[in-house]
Structures are given as structure tokens and as C-alpha cells.
């Protein structure tokens, strides 16, 4: 039997912090969509056109949710909430894939989607409580010369394949390789996924959760932090720092 470090008991997972993680400060997120565009540009995400986009087929790996509540003039907003793959430590999407296209990376503790393994059963998407997965319903047109812009580090997906946020794993690999070649640890802030890199408000903070001194670890532990549907036991690696409306909160 091959060696592996996969825990036998789920409860063991509860004690792990995860490796890479993200904190999203909803108080700072302005909903500007820079992350959405950056994500699309970095990850070769296809655009689907007006009809399909309106029918819930757009391929946004990252969507910014918000809702208006109440009637004029007592209108409130729920605040902008970027929702992306939460890279669950205990991901519901993984076990349901019959061909191991959705698997867990032990090295990065991320939830991987292996595009060329995917046969398109879409079970993973149904089982994702965060509705974070998107499916290539067609071969979406990318007329020449738009394809010049494709990132060679990221697979271009064809029809019939599920895709989702990867935490820009191609960048993680690059940074890890760089650190390894220089014989050091990855520095805090060295690795930035496209969304965090673009975010003008610096509302998305990315880093190592297993380093208690990293910015993201510290933020995740503040009182404002919570995770989406923690009660489901999925161990999300994204922490949301809730929006504050009180005037004069001490900094």
C-alpha cells in the first residue's frame, strides 16, 4: 500500500488550520468588481455572452453578492460579499465525483479541480453549498486575437467541464518554487492571487493560515471574522470580516 497522509477521521481535520487561506473584509469591499475582472484575466475564463449570462451560465469564479433590503427611504444593503470557492478543508464537492476530478491537494490543502479528468456529471456543483462552481455549457467563442492574452499557466477549458476558483494555484506553485530555490520559506504577502492583487481597497488578504503571524491568520482570528455556513462543517478557508456600521468603532 502506498503511503499517504490522509486522515482517517474527519475530526482530525477540525484541528488543522489549513495552509493557504483568505480573509475578505466586507467593511472594505466596495463591490467594484476589480477582483472579478482580474480573476477572469488571470484564469482564462471565457465570457459567455448576454443570453447565457442572464440564464445563470456566466463563468464567474468569483461573484459579488449583495441585496437591497427594505423600502425607500429605509433602504439598507446587505453589504458586498464576494463569494468564491471556499477551498473547504472538508469539501462536499470532492467525494461525489466519480472520476476523482475534484480532489484535495495535500500539499496546499486546497480543493483541486482536474479539468482534463472531468467528465461533466456536475455532481460537485450540486453538492457545493456555496454555489461556487461553474460549468462550461458550450465551447465559448474567443475570437482571434483575444486568445493571445491566454495565460499559459492555466488550462483553457472546453465544453463539458466544471471549473472554479483555484486560489490561483499556478501562482502558489511559482512562489513556492521560487522560495524553495532560494532555500527559504514563502514570505507573508509574497503570494497574491489575482483578486487580492487587484483589490483596490485591499479587502482581500491572502496568505498562510498555518503561520500564526501572517496577516491573514491574524485577521481571521479577529472578532469580526466568520465563515460561510460554518455549521455545515465544511471547514472553509475563507474568512469574512463582517461589515461594521457603527460610527466611531475604534480601529
Amino acid at each position: 500500500m502506498a503511503k499517504h497522509n490522509i486522515p482517517e477521521v474527519k475530526a482530525d481535520l477540525e484541528n488543522t488550520t489549513g495552509i493557504w487561506g483568505m480573509a475578505i473584509d466586507q467593511d472594505l469591499c466596495t463591490g467594484c468588481q476589480a477582483c472579478v475582472a482580474a480573476c477572469a484575466m488571470e484564469n482564462n475564463i471565457a465570457f459567455v455572452g448576454e443570453t447565457d449570462a442572464g440564464y445563470g451560465r456566466s463563468l464567474h469564479w468569483l461573484r459579488i453578492e449583495h441585496a437591497f433590503e427594505g423600502e425607500f427611504p429605509e433602504v439598507q444593503t446587505s453589504g458586498f460579499q464576494p463569494v468564491l470557492c471556499q477551498q473547504c478543508g472538508n469539501a462536499p464537492c470532492e467525494p461525489v465525483c466519480p472520476v476523482f476530478a475534484s480532489v484535495h491537494s495535500q500539499a496546499q490543502d486546497l480543493n483541486l479541480q482536474v479539468y482534463n479528468r472531468c467528465v461533466g456529471t456536475r455532481y460537485c456543483a450540486n453538492n457545493c453549498p456555496y454555489v461556487a462552481r461553474v460549468f462550461n455549457m458550450r465551447d465559448y467563442d474567443r475570437p482571434e486575437p483575444l486568445s493571445n492574452q491566454l495565460n499559459p499557466d492555466v488550462t483553457v477549458r472546453r465544453r463539458g467541464i466544471m471549473e472554479k476558483c483555484t486560489f490561483c494555484i499556478q501562482r502558489i506553485h511559482k512562489v513556492e518554487d521560487q522560495a524553495k530555490s532560494e532555500g527559504r520559506e514563502v514570505l507573508d504577502g509574497e503570494m497574491q492571487p489575482a483578486c487580492a492583487q487587484a483589490c483596490p481597497a485591499d479587502a482581500i488578504i491572502f496568505g498562510r493560515l498555518d503561520d500564526p503571524e501572517s496577516r491573514v491568520s491574524k485577521l481571521a482570528k479577529t472578532g469580526r471574522g466568520s465563515q460561510l455556513f460554518e455549521d455545515l462543517g465544511t471547514l472553509p478557508r475563507v474568512t469574512y470580516l463582517k461589515e461594521e456600521k457603527d460610527y466611531g468603532r475604534l480601529g
Binding site: 500500500m1 490522509i6 486522515p7 469539501a91 476523482f100 480532489v103 484535495h104
Partner: peptide, 15 residues
């Protein structure tokens, strides 16, 4: 499952 052990959703390799 042990010829290529993969973690899926925190389930044991041999479910």
C-alpha cells in the same frame, strides 16, 4: 483506492 491515494472531502482513503 490505495494505488493512488487521494483525499476526498476528508473521507478515509478506504471508505
Amino acid at each position: 483506492p490505495t494505488t493512488y491515494p487521494l483525499n476526498v472531502g476528508g473521507q478515509p482513503v478506504i471508505p
